[in-house]
Nucleic acid binder design. Structure first.
Length: 470
DNA sequence: GCATGATCATGC
DNA sequence: GCATGATCATGC
């Protein structure tokens, strides 16, 4: 704690930044002085006492308001204008966390404003409320540390961000895709997984707040436009590594220049098109056509092959990382049904019982967009590239069958019945099965024992329907 | 042949 | 050493 550095002095704000005259660069330069410091250093003592007196304080949003008011010296507004009206800069304070394996990731998505379904249906992208407010974002990242009082969290990076050309293309297509659903009267079917960088996340006191929409009687969940967590991670790491002159972890782009977008094509169209020449070819033929130097016996051979087709040599794919798109390779048997169910990361028994469905881990994992690369065994028992598709789980399946499985799993954990989880026959969409190194690979239970690691799986019959109906 | 239980392989 | 994606093994 840097109590010696206390500055509740007013001259910090008044003298340093006349925000009504400041340029975007002035504001950024001023913001950078926060790095290495914490909020406590800039706010009045009575404020500190006030917050320290509140138990179970909900921190969300407060940090940003305090910085805006006491560091930048302006009252927060939540109107249509950017925070710094003249400079057109919107201020955003957002957490990153340290990863166990080293490096940082964004702790959450960045929420940019509630969607007004009526207005958004009528706007053009260029003239939209979204662009007007968020064209220039001053991003202030702080390091989230478990258990630390929020006024003591340290600022790691301040950066003025304007949407880059190639990111802009995808963000604009995302925006248009969301708008299209509103125009078709489908606001209630919008899912965060529909889009790549810009997501429409649920937003409300209990995530169940409903709103009217213009072209349907059906009420839709209140949603906000947000930059996805993976995108925020990518932004932070890009800027942070530049400032620290560290090596950036490699993630190559699929679309190397913006000119690759022919008329009317989206990112997903470009990706799909890359696969077209290889559909119907055997894995051996594809391997030869591309002259790839990859190991045929490795378990990730088919994923390597797909990356080869995409023209990416790195393990990570830039656009997919930022969009949170999960690439999955699927092998179909001759009957058209996947040979295997699809696994997800193991869950912790002690944590899943504390979660709320609206923001649980499973939901987050399933709301991502998926990119399926489908191979199929032909009559000669050769594996042939069959098709590729992007997919997001329908809201109805997520809120229906998947939620049932999740609820039932939690119920059995609470009862201590670790052999009574939903089986693949019990539910058409999902089930629970082991996912461990071996029998000794366990997680602790709320009852104090240990049980083999398990995870949620999507049933192969369900995946089969998805693939064959698209 | 399939459901379920169990484990492998890779990369960080 | 572990998280994660993917696959194997067994018994009905």
């Amino acid at each position: 704690m840097k109590r010696s550095n206390f500055t509740t002095d007013i001259d910090l704000k008044g003298a340093s930044l006349a925000y009504d005259r400041a340029s975007p660069d002035d504001i950024e330069r001023y913001a950078k002085r926060l790095v290495g410091h914490c909020t406590r250093e800039y706010i009045p003592a009575e404020k500190i006492r006030e917050y320290e007196g509140i138990k179970n304080l909900s921190v969300k949003g407060i940090l940003g308001q305090l910085i805006e008011e006491f560091y930048f010296g302006k009252k927060p507004n939540s109107n249509q204008e950017p925070d710094f009206v003249r400079a057109g800069v919107e201020l955003k304070t957002t957490p990153v966390k340290k990863l166990k394996k080293g490096g940082y990731s964004s702790k959450e998505r960045l929420v940019l404003g509630i969607i007004d379904y009526f207005k958004m249906a009528e706007e053009s992208f260029q003239e939209s409320a979204f662009v007007k407010k968020n064209a220039k974002l001053l991003l202030i990242f702080y390091l989230h540390e478990e258990g630390k009082f929020f006024l003591d969290l340290i600022f790691k990076l301040a950066k003025l961000w304007r949407i880059d050309d190639d990111d802009l293309k995808i963000i604009m297509d995302d925006w248009l895709k969301i708008q299209k659903k509103i125009k078709y009267g489908l606001a209630h079917e919008i899912s965060e997984g529909d889009t790549l960088y810009l997501g429409a996340c649920t937003k409300g006191a209990n995530s169940k707040t409903l709103r009217q929409q213009p072209f349907s009687q059906e009420e839709a969940m209140q949603r906000a436009l947000s930059l996805k967590q993976g995108f925020m991670t990518s932004l932070f790491n890009r800027f942070y590594t530049i400032e620290k002159r560290k090596k950036l972890e490699k993630a190559e782009k699929i679309v190397k220049n913006i000119g690759e977008y022919k008329k009317g094509m989206t990112f997903e169209d470009v990706v799909t098109k890359r696969f077209e020449p290889f559909i119907g070819k055997t894995t051996d033929e594809i391997h030869k056509m591309l002259d790839l130097d990859i190991n045929k016996n490795a378990k990730n051979y088919y994923a390597d092959l797909a990356r080869g087709i995409l023209g990416v040599r790195t393990k990570k794919i830039d656009e997919f990382e930022k969009a949170g798109v999960k690439m999955k390779t699927i092998r179909l048997g001759k009957n058209g049904i996947p040979k295997e169910h699809m696994s997800f990361p193991a869950f912790k028994y002690t944590e899943i019982i504390k979660e709320e469905w609206e923001e649980c881990t499973l939901r987050e994992q399933l709301e991502q967009r998926f990119f399926f690369v489908v191979y199929r065994y032909n009559e000669k028992n050769e594996l042939v590239l069959d098709k590729v598709l992007f997919w997001t789980i329908p809201m109805s399946d997520l809120e229906g069958e998947v939620k049932k499985v999740w609820d039932e799993t939690r119920r059995q954990i609470e009862r201590g019945k670790y052999d009574k989880f939903p089986r693949s026959k019990d539910n058409p969409v999902s089930h629970v099965r082991p996912h461990a190194q071996n029998a000794e690979d366990t997680f602790e239970t709320p009852q104090g024992g240990r049980e083999m690691k398990k995870c949620f799986w999507l049933n192969r019959e369900y995946i089969s329907d998805v693939i064959n109906l698209e």
